[in-house]
Structures are given as C-alpha cells and as structure tokens.
C-alpha cells in the first residue's frame, strides 16, 4: 500500500491543542516588550506551528524521502531569494559613494 499509515486520532487532537496554545502564546507575547526578541519569538512560534502542521497534519513525518526533499528544496530556495536580496541591501554603503566624477579634478585615490 502506497498510502501513509493511519495516524491515531489522539495525535491529531494533541497537535491541535498544541497549536491553539501556541496561538495564545504568540498573541500574549506581543503584549510584552522583549525588544528585538519580539520578532524572534513571533517567528519562532510560527516556525513551530508550521512544523506541527507539516509533520502531523500533512503527514511529512510518514512520507518518503522524495517528499522531504521537495519540502526542504522549497524552503531552501525561499531562503536563497530572501537571503541574497538582503545581502544586497544590508551591505550597501559599506563603501562610501565616490565623489561625483569630473574631468578637471585629478583622481583622489592614494
């Protein structure tokens, strides 16, 4: 049988309860000033929720390797896009803009 094993009802309920607790947690955390960690906590909890849905509701836990590769590839390519775009914007200005070029002024490089 190619189909996945049938996940016990109990597992689904536990995952669902965990998800609801996490919603409450992440909403509550927004009311506490954690400085830059507000974003980290919010995205960290979102990541955990995503993993719960992926692993149990979407049966990734019981899937074959090919499905894992597909899921990881999607995440990897998304990080490529975000990472390389940010690499550009964050490293701008590391070298100060050169003075406007003019034909009369001699080059100022040492």
């Amino acid at each position: 049988m190619a189909a996945q094993p049938i996940v016990p009802f109990r597992t689904y309920v536990l995952v669902f309860v965990a998800l609801l607790v996490l919603v409450a947690l992440t909403t509550g955390a927004a009311f506490i000033d954690l400085g830059p960690f507000n974003t980290v906590v919010a995205l960290g909890i979102a990541f955990i929720k995503m993993m719960l849905v992926l692993l149990f509701f979407m049966h990734l836990l019981h899937s074959n390797k090919l499905t894992h590769v597909t899921a990881v590839a999607a995440a990897f390519w998304l990080l490529l896009l975000i990472g390389l775009v940010f690499a550009d914007y964050t490293s701008r200005g590391w070298i100060p803009d050169p003075a406007p070029w003019s034909s009369s002024a001699p080059p100022t490089h040492p």
């Binding site: 927004a30 954690l34 979102a46």
Partner: peptide
C-alpha cells in the same frame, strides 16, 4: 494545510510585528 501555513506566518508578520505594549 499549506494555505493554513501561509496564514501562520502572515499573522505574526502583519499583526504582531510591532508589539502591542
């Protein structure tokens, strides 16, 4: 479930980002 996951990220990114304190 995938559409759900998108929302799982939209919620913190759009609603929680600035904090509510």
């Amino acid at each position: 479930h995938f559409v759900d996951i998108i929302w799982i990220f939209l919620f913190p990114l759009l609603y929680l980002i600035g904090g509510r304190f």
